[in-house]
């Protein structure tokens, strides 16, 4: 079996990180598998994990009283999942549900926060990488918000 370290190093999110930093991260890592239909997390639960997704597909859903769960986004191979572990008060803001068998490396959020506090260089590097992901997701969300395939067009000036 491949070592966690090796798997991590090959993941787009971790790729190129200094070996000593990967070492630090490995200290917080464990393997995780979710069968289709299983929840990785649910809204309002404590956000303990940061997932590095290896394969499969996870649907991010917000529960609405009228329509039930509405899927907002899906993430999968090569993506990361979850930043609530980083942002107080560390609770999940939506449901994460595997829609295919999903393999991930689960990083312990508390552990990772600790390492980042101790090693600001690692912390900054991770923050830069996360900021990149935020930017991409935000951009995609903006495009999604435009509802470009809708027949109705907002009135022009």
């Amino acid at each position: 079996m491949e070592s966690l370290e090796k798997i991590l190093q090959q993941h787009p999110f971790i790729q190129g990180l200094a070996p000593e930093h990967v070492q630090l991260i490995v200290g917080c890592a464990k393997n995780a598998v979710f069968e289709a239909g299983k929840f990785l997390f649910k809204e309002d639960e404590e956000a303990g994990e940061f997932y590095i997704l290896r394969s499969g597909k996870v649907s991010l859903e917000i529960y609405t009283p009228e329509y039930g769960p509405v899927a907002i986004q899906t993430v999968g191979e090569g993506d990361i999942l979850g930043w609530s572990w980083l942002i107080p008060p560390y609770f999940w803001r939506m449901d994460g549900r595997a829609i295919e068998t999903t393999r991930a490396i689960s990083l312990d959020g508390k552990c990772l926060r600790g390492k980042c506090e101790k090693d600001p260089k690692l912390g900054y590097e991770l923050m830069k990488r996360l900021a990149n992901v935020f930017e991409q997701r935000l951009n995609a969300m903006r495009l999604q918000l435009l509802d470009i395939y809708s027949i109705k067009v907002p009135n022009k000036k």
């Binding site: 289709a36 899927a71 986004q73 899906t74 829609i99 995609a140 495009l143 509802d147």
Partner: peptide, 19 residues
């Protein structure tokens, strides 16, 4: 295939095509 929005029951992708 991906869609901009979906109710549960859709097991495909959700998100814009660029993703």
């Amino acid at each position: 295939v991906t869609v901009d929005r979906a109710a549960r029951g859709w097991n495909g992708n959700v998100g814009v095509v660029t993703t």
